[in-house]
């Protein structure tokens, strides 16, 4: 019980930290904390496989992607600068709207019975035991038999994502669109175009 509350406070604090920092690197650190706390929460909910997935995929891959992009964008240009704020004080309506939504949501959640009616076959057991609810075997069986379609769909989505990234962020136009000073700056920073690995 206390574990839940501690984790909950850490979760919210890291989320707020992520959203409110000026520097993206600090935000990344906050996000990392958030993911780790979330993984811990998953473990308390018997979802051990998902907890591992959370750590490996989210904090291991996606966050790294963020870090690399931060590096990519900030190199050669200087620290992140921002133009004039064209929508000042937008926090007020934003917070207001979210508070309203949260209020209604809380009202809805608290007044709706959330308990299920049909029990399920798989059995609960402590985390770490084989073949219990939430274990790797349980997840794998479901993924490759009953829920095969989502599995195939995820593969498809990932392929589309890779193609999209390559198209979008790859070098569409070579050197002639870059100024000489930029070129030398990039060269000095050791930066290579993403696609042309052979150069």
């Amino acid at each position: 019980m206390t574990a839940f509350y501690v984790l909950a406070i850490l979760l919210i604090a890291s989320a707020v930290f992520t959203v409110t920092q000026k520097s993206p690197v600090y935000s990344v650190v906050g996000l990392l904390t958030n993911f780790l706390v979330l993984a811990a929460l998953y473990f308390t909910l018997n979802a051990e496989f998902l907890g591992i997935i959370q750590i490996v995929v989210y904090s291991g891959a996606i966050l790294m992607l963020f870090v690399f992009v931060i590096a990519l964008l900030s190199s050669g240009i200087g620290p992140f600068s921002e133009g004039p704020n064209r929508l000042p004080r937008v926090a007020i309506p934003a917070v207001l709207a979210t508070l309203v939504a949260f209020g209604f949501l809380a009202f809805g959640v608290l007044h709706t019975p959330l308990a299920p009616t049909t029990p399920h076959a798989a059995s609960l057991g402590p985390v770490g035991t084989a073949n219990v609810f939430g274990s790797v075997a349980d997840f794998g069986v479901a993924l490759f038999t009953v829920q095969l379609l989502p599995f195939e769909v995820t593969a498809f989505i990932l392929m589309v994502a890779v193609i999209g990234v390559v198209l979008l962020a790859g070098d569409a136009s070579p050197q002639k669109t870059r100024g000489s000073h930029e070129k030398s700056a990039l060269k000095s920073a050791g930066r290579e175009p993403i696609v042309k690995a052979g150069r």
């Binding site: 909910l45 018997n46 979802a47 496989f49 998902l50 959330l114 308990a115 299920p116 029990p119 399920h120 798989a122 609960l124 609810f133 939430g134 349980d138 997840f139 479901a142 993924l143 829920q147 989502p150």
Partner: peptide, 10 residues
């Protein structure tokens, strides 16, 4: 977890 249904995990 509340409904002991691993469709949620998927």
């Amino acid at each position: 977890r509340a409904w002991v249904n691993n469709a949620g995990h998927i």
